[in-house]
Design a protein around this nucleic acid. Sequence first.
RNA 1: GGCAGGGUAGCUCAGCCGGUUAGAGCACGGCACUCAUAAUGCCGGGGUCGCGGGUUCGAGUCCCGCCCCUGCUACCA
Length: 530
Amino acid sequence: MTERKTTYLTTAIDYANGPPHMGHALEKIGADAMARYRRLKGEDVRLVIGMDEHGLNVLQSATAAGISPQQWVDNLADRFRDTWKRLGISNDDFIRTTEPRHKRAVEALIERIAAAGDLYRGTYAGYYCVGCESYKGEDELVPVAEAGAGSAGSAGTATAGAAQAGQREVHHLRCPLHPTRTLLWMEESNWFFRLSRFQEPLLRLLDERPEFIQPEIRRNEIRRVIEGGLEDISVSRARLPWGVPWPGDPEHTVYVWIDALTNYLSAVGFPDPDYTRWWPAELHVIGKDITRFHCIYWPAMLMSAGLELPRGVWAHGFLTFEGRRFSKSAGVWVELDDAIARHGPDAFRYYLLREVPWNGDGDFSWTRFDERYTADLADDLGNLVNRTLSMIERYRAGVVPAGARTSLDERAAVVLDAYRAAMDANLLHQGAAAAMELASAANAFVVERAPWQQVKDPALASELDTTLGSLARALATLATLLEPFMPGKMAELASRLGLERVPRLVELPTMDLAGRNIARGEVLFPKERK
RNA sequence: GGCAGGGUAGCUCAGCCGGUUAGAGCACGGCACUCAUAAUGCCGGGGUCGCGGGUUCGAGUCCCGCCCCUGCUACCA
């Protein structure tokens, strides 16, 4: 017997410093479409979404709100979970970094890296802005007009063996965000990870497995970074209470990145042996801004720990609003709830996935959204459904007739090939476009066959059967192909065709709907009259 | 500065290794049809393919220079 292919897909866990927004939604919707497509192919898919709940920002936000950090992240987790549910995201798990199962995995991973000899005690030194409560790179700072004696040394370098921690005031630079505060040069004893050791192995990885980072643009960027040389990174923080305590050194907490990345393992049960049922992950779906962490730090950590690497990382692009960067303070902003409410969650999903290239950046605009909704969903697809079901109801008493295959079935086969090619390459926007071609072809087919003429002539009864049968199959095919994009509406469409669920991809070529009782129902994508 | 990607109809974009009159969708105009959400189908108008050189029988499609846009340029998702 053949075992079903298991596929583990992850998304970036979202930082618990604010409610879900459009950017979060784009990633989850895209990842969900990828997961749903693979399920339609018959794979056993596990899609995981989650929250990154440690760190200084969380602690500060909670304190400002007058609640405990745990209460704070609990509230946000509920909001995110609710949003994903409303958007029809089919995640199988929701991992949170404050969960015991996660802490356990982080400890186990660190112990493995330590056993490999890739952790050591060192000193992290850098400019520290008290106003920002964070370290600053030199390029983030501005010189003070009367440049005094400079303090030598670049920010953020590790000095192995240096033991003493300290701080002193810096007077020749200042933080542009807090110009009145005195900048500090701080040294902190931390744990370091020997990232430098993995420069060559990582370059080999990119050579041997070019598909590891997709799309290709991101791979080139990462290669440049690696070729530029890798320095060891500090992976623990002192004085940060809201985090996973460092194993064996509770004065420190695990640095946010190490903590967060490990979620991909903890969500499948690591270090319990059966985590390998899902690991290695098929794809980490992330934003293009965090490729470095997923394509350099993460594989290096896994190599060190002797664990398998994920098969790939997919970096999607970003969204602009009417051509400009999202910025709440500048008023360039769309509330996610408003976007969902406009035409419903399925239409919102369709718009984002059809309009925004999944391998690049895209734009959200209300005008385009409305145009897509009207042209694609209401007029093209929705009307096709309505007119087809109406004719089956009127001409054949609501029962799909048996009919020979037609040019429309041939067209559906061609569309299916193009669709699979696009979806297998993770080009979701092309997959959606391919599917919609079938809707257009079906509309043209209706006019060509003119069933309202066929029904008038009893001699053409079998011709009419052929027309309606073929149209019903086209609708079922559309329900399948568009299910990853609009799961709610397509399940509804399948139901109206008398199907208990959307057909799988392999079932499409031999599918026969003859004898099924259809239900016309309400218009699938109503147009609001204004 | 360096590296990478991009500048093609009003808008969003396709255009493999160079080859007849540069394509699609949307928007716009005309015609047809009536099953349907005043929906659908067909036809059409519309482009100096960023700018300037070069290679070639022939270049959005290759080479050189320039202009403009975007991303990356390592520990803060």
